[in-house]
């Protein structure tokens, strides 16, 4: 097991390092502004005194590396500074919205993951039939459509025309869990459609690649029944790619959520990010970007570690 542990630790270290580089990138990008934040936000009409006052308030008179480490230390302890527009602490604004986004993403994931893996295996078993071809065209269409197209089609047919689901996903505090699920069904379904298509294709590809390998042929030739070939011979080797597929798509869910949230006016972190970008509220933009990037890297990391841990060849070294 020693070998596996070192590999996992190395991978974790690499992930942390990437995150560090990205935090430098996110911080450094704002430093690239012509002039500085104060001038950019206040505009050309601002008096010198105003700009100077804002610089002092933001601590812009210190050198960039000093401010970076202050920002990073704050970010690690959950303090992202103060919003330039609303003057309230960024963390207070983000926390409830991030929880909402996580809820929506996990809602979609709970529906999508089992369906996608099941369908992916079925499609792989029936490959090169009419069913496979139709599934191929449908998944390709779903992947290629922008999220807002799927979202508006669902709103039109399931929301407005039949009235089965509410087309705007606003939340309030005194909603029961069932109401919440009903209210957020359409945004979740939009993401499910995209993610299922992606996952199905990837699962199909990885299973087909496996079924072509010689040891599967061998198992078939010695007369093992079909289901046993899949369960005993194919699946142990298929876990790694499947876990990879799941983690990659969860990472996609976290970021693909931005457009879906805007379509359904869902109070999540994606919508917050878009608002902050339009208003040029840099502390909020930085915090949102860092959270998104961290989640994305974490999930990719989880994919890699999962692949290592489920790889029989690595678990039982010769």
């Amino acid at each position: 097991m020693g070998g596996v542990l070192t590999i996992v630790l190395k991978r974790l270290g690499l992930g942390l390092f990437t995150l560090f580089i990205i935090s430098v990138l996110i911080f450094g990008a704002v430093e690239l502004l012509p002039g500085d934040i104060a001038e950019a936000v206040l505009g050309q009409g601002a008096t010198k005194e105003n700009v100077q006052a804002m610089r002092e308030a933001l601590g812009l008179d210190k050198a960039a590396p000093v401010r970076y480490f202050e920002w990073l230390a704050g970010a690690v302890t959950g303090n992202f500074g103060v919003s330039l527009i609303s003057q309230s602490p960024v963390t207070e604004v983000i926390a409830p919205r991030f929880a909402n986004t996580l809820f929506l993403a996990s809602y979609a994931a709970v529906i999508a993951v089992p369906i996608a893996i099941l369908l992916g295996v079925v499609v792989a078993l029936f490959r090169d039939t009419l069913f496979d071809r139709v599934a191929n065209v449908l998944t390709l269409t779903s992947i290629s459509s922008p999220e807002f197209f799927l979202g508006y089609v669902l709103i039109l047919y399931l929301g407005v025309k039949t009235g089965m689901f509410p087309s705007i996903a606003t939340l309030n505090d005194n909603m029961t869990f069932l109401e919440l699920l009903h209210r957020t069904f359409l945004p979740a379904l939009t993401m499910v459609l995209v993610v299922v298509a992606h996952m199905m294709r990837m699962t199909r590809a990885s299973i087909i690649a496996l079924l072509a390998s010689p040891y599967i042929e061998m198992a078939r030739l010695k007369g093992t029944p079909g289901w046993k070939v899949i369960v005993k011979h194919a699946l142990p080797n298929a876990w790694a790619p499947i876990i990879n597929v799941v983690a990659l798509n969860l990472a996609y869910l976290i970021t693909g959520v931005v457009l879906v949230e805007v379509v359904f006016v869902y109070p999540g972190i994606g919508q917050l990010l878009v608002d902050a970008v339009t208003k040029r509220d840099f502390p909020v933009v930085q915090a949102c970007c860092l959270i998104f990037a961290a989640t994305f890297i974490l999930l990719n990391l989880a994919a890699d570690v999962g692949a290592i841990l489920t790889n029989p060849r690595l678990r039982h070294p010769k």
Binding site: T18, I22, V277, C288, F296, N300
Partner: peptide, 10 residues
Amino acid sequence: SVPSLIFALL
């Protein structure tokens, strides 16, 4: 390693 939409927004 940064999602493209997020990078673009930044």
